[in-house]
Design a protein around this nucleic acid. Structure first.
Lengths: 159, 159
DNA sequence: GTCGGTGCAAATGCTTTGCATTGAT
DNA sequence: ATCAATGCAAAGCATTTGCACCGAC
């Protein structure tokens, strides 16, 4: 069973003060509002997610939890991740046709990605201009922004 | 066997003069350069792709070709689509965790997407500002742009 | 006590692959 | 003639689901 390795990655953002406790209660509140339960498995998964500061994958998270002796089934990982996305705590990022990546977003600036297609290296960045753009595009259509995903693919200059 | 329906979609671009013949020779040239062959199946698939002006899916394309009496196997569709992407004729768009979508891009302005998360309606748009942004982000990292993908998620204003 | 949650294994669905045959160059 | 392409069926892989038991509320 080969564990897929996360993409190489540099984090462009200075680690903006992560407030762990609030996120837990935010998740509890979200679950309660929907008549769902806050179980010990969900607490463990949230903890594991909070310990990651870049992109991560569902199975990777599961194996790391396994190694840490916190065994939660794959099904539960996937089910919980869906709720975390719904709750606005993490976002799904689709870098390629393979597995989904996720990243903590709650209380952070929206993150965009620059992928070097030669090396697969991923650089994160934040773009206020893009946020403006999202807002104006939405406004044109009488809508309001509910997240976005920008992936820029790039390569070494031809010469 | 349920055929998945393509997302509802409006095309924001005036159909910029599509030059069909050139694309065929462009594809031939691409294939030759790689020691690959231009087969009748690939010609049929290219034709089918050129007949689409918005997003499409691999299986959907196959069924449409089937209905038109042009039967090409699923394997060949997928194999050819990969080459079309490599050739820069179409681009892959990942709107969700389900199947991939594709869209003709050769000779067109890069297309971005606004997804109404309530209705799943997709509006295409073009953004020169975004192209500027891509260039400046790439320049900062000593790279040059090689495509991008922007999906804006939006919803009806809360009130 | 009621439902929703969990783990497991099986199922799903998109996409890829192995292989024998066919066809472009 | 060579070597890639095709079609088919089978495999792969990330993700989802059915079900019997468990646990949060």
């Amino acid at each position: 069973m080969a564990r897929s390795t996360p993409p190489t990655q540099t984090n462009a953002s200075e680690p903006d003060e992560i407030i762990v406790a609030p996120l837990c209660s935010i998740f509890r509140r979200f679950l309660k509002k929907r008549g769902l339960k806050f179980t010990s498995e969900r607490a463990l998964i949230l903890d594991a997610v909070l310990s990651k500061d870049g992109l991560f994958e569902a199975e990777q998270l599961m194996y790391e939890m396994y190694d840490a002796g916190q065994k939660v089934s794959k099904a539960t990982i996937y089910r919980t991740i869906k709720h975390l996305v719904e709750a606005g705590i993490i976002q799904e990022v689709r870098l390629d046709s393979k597995q989904a990546h996720y990243q903590l977003i709650y209380g952070r600036k929206p993150t965009d990605y620059l992928v070097n297609v030669d090396t697969d290296e991923i650089v994160e960045f934040h773009s206020p201009e893009l946020i403006q753009l999202c807002e104006s595009v939405c406004r044109e259509h009488g809508l309001e922004p509910d997240g976005h995903q920008l992936i820029i693919y790039a390569r070494k200059p031809s010469k």
